[in-house]
């Protein structure tokens, strides 16, 4: 169980949060200008990268605020948490994520 740094509440246990998937997937400007395939991309398709991923979380059992985070999907480590009011990093990990990842892969 990780500690997740809610931009409003600080570090809290992972169980207080719900995951919201990929961030910055905007509702289409005009859904009716999209063909079915383009609409399906919005509805069903999300990025699924191996490595850093910008995603949404909500502090469901806390302040109920949504926020964005940059997280490494291999180490699961949060690299930055964004204050969604500015979408600037509110916290940034000092750790070298790639080094961690190497360590993990070597330990496998």
């Amino acid at each position: 169980m990780q500690l997740i740094a809610c931009p409003w509440c600080g570090k809290r246990e992972e169980t207080e949060f719900h995951y919201g998937g990929q961030a910055h997937v905007a509702y289409p400007e005009d859904p009716y200008a999209l063909d079915d395939e383009q609409w399906a991309q919005y509805v069903f398709f999300r990025d699924n990268p191996r490595g850093p991923f910008t995603e949404r979380w909500v502090h469901a059992a806390g302040c109920r605020r949504w926020f964005n985070a940059l997280r490494d999907t291999v180490t699961h480590e949060f690299l930055a948490v964004h204050d969604s009011r500015t979408d600037q990093p509110a916290t940034a990990s000092t750790a070298l994520a790639s080094q961690r990842r190497k360590g993990q892969e070597a330990g496998r």
Partner: peptide, 13 residues
């Protein structure tokens, strides 16, 4: 586990 992950590890809770 709720989040995307390629680490072949999950959370203990």
């Amino acid at each position: 586990d709720s989040y995307n992950g390629y680490g072949q590890r999950g959370a203990f809770h």
